[in-house]
Amino acid sequence: MTARPRTIVACFLLGASAFLLLCLEITIGDFPLTVPEVAAGLFGSGDPAALLVINEIRLPRALVGLLIGIAFGVGGLLFQALARNPLASPDVIGVTDGANTFAVATLLAGAGTGLGMSTMAVLGGFTVSAIVVGLSWKQGTTGIRIVLVGIGMAALCGSITDYLLLKSGAFQAQQAVVWLTGSLSGRTWGSVPALAVAVALLVPAALALGKWLAGLELGEDTARGLGVPVQGARLAIMAVGVGLVSFATAAAGPVAFVALLAPQIARRLVHPSVPPLMTSGLVGAVVVLAADLVARTLLSSGELPVGVVTGVVGAPVLLWLLARSFR
């Protein structure tokens, strides 16, 4: 049990980094502001334009980044542990693709990138994963069966999305591609409440499921021996994971790769005996916030979607950890 203090130290350091990045997100940007101005602005005093920038543009965006990072980190770990497969991110299980298809369909139906799109994305994530569970159910289900049916559904949804993109005009296709990459640009307070409630409810739920998760990771028979109600546990874990990923996807699009990356980094940071849910969530938050900071400041003419940068920021860390841990 040497992992325990190591986990606590890692969580503390990651939490501190996430907070620091959050502060930087609010301070740095194209609208020039000093630290005292930002501090005063947060309490509502200052130039009206500055107040808008701080409270209506940067703060909600930073919060959305923090929350989706946690949600993808925790949700990704749930899926990987459930399927006992490091490649089993929500991207391959159909949750993300379901959310994508519904969201892109809403976008192309002319509803734009507003809250309607987010609601539909959540609905899509839940609908498709319910279908996946339903189709893989035959006197109970297994991790591998969920994953394989998930692949099929993901491909089906992906082809529908592609079809919609081809049928759309270039303008809409471009907007859809931005959505499909994942972006925090233009997130306002409207995106925060649903996401915050989801994270506040589902992350503790995931932590409460941690024991079952650890049991399932050892294999179905061992889990049963440990007294885990296998089928019920699978459904519960699936439901929590789908909830986290759907709400996060709805808020910012599928921020590629965080769900796959964060759990792997977390595992290699703390060498846990149980799935490191908290660590994974915090790694996710740090990766998303750091990536967004780079995305906003790298180009002078515009900004990159955060989903583009998570691959470039996160993948080298994973590859480095991979290469190192195998030595």
Partner: peptide, 19 residues
Amino acid sequence: QSVGITYGEFNVDKFLSLR
């Protein structure tokens, strides 16, 4: 000044800084 090139990536921060 450019406040965004790509569809869906309108930089509101920069837009406001142009007053």
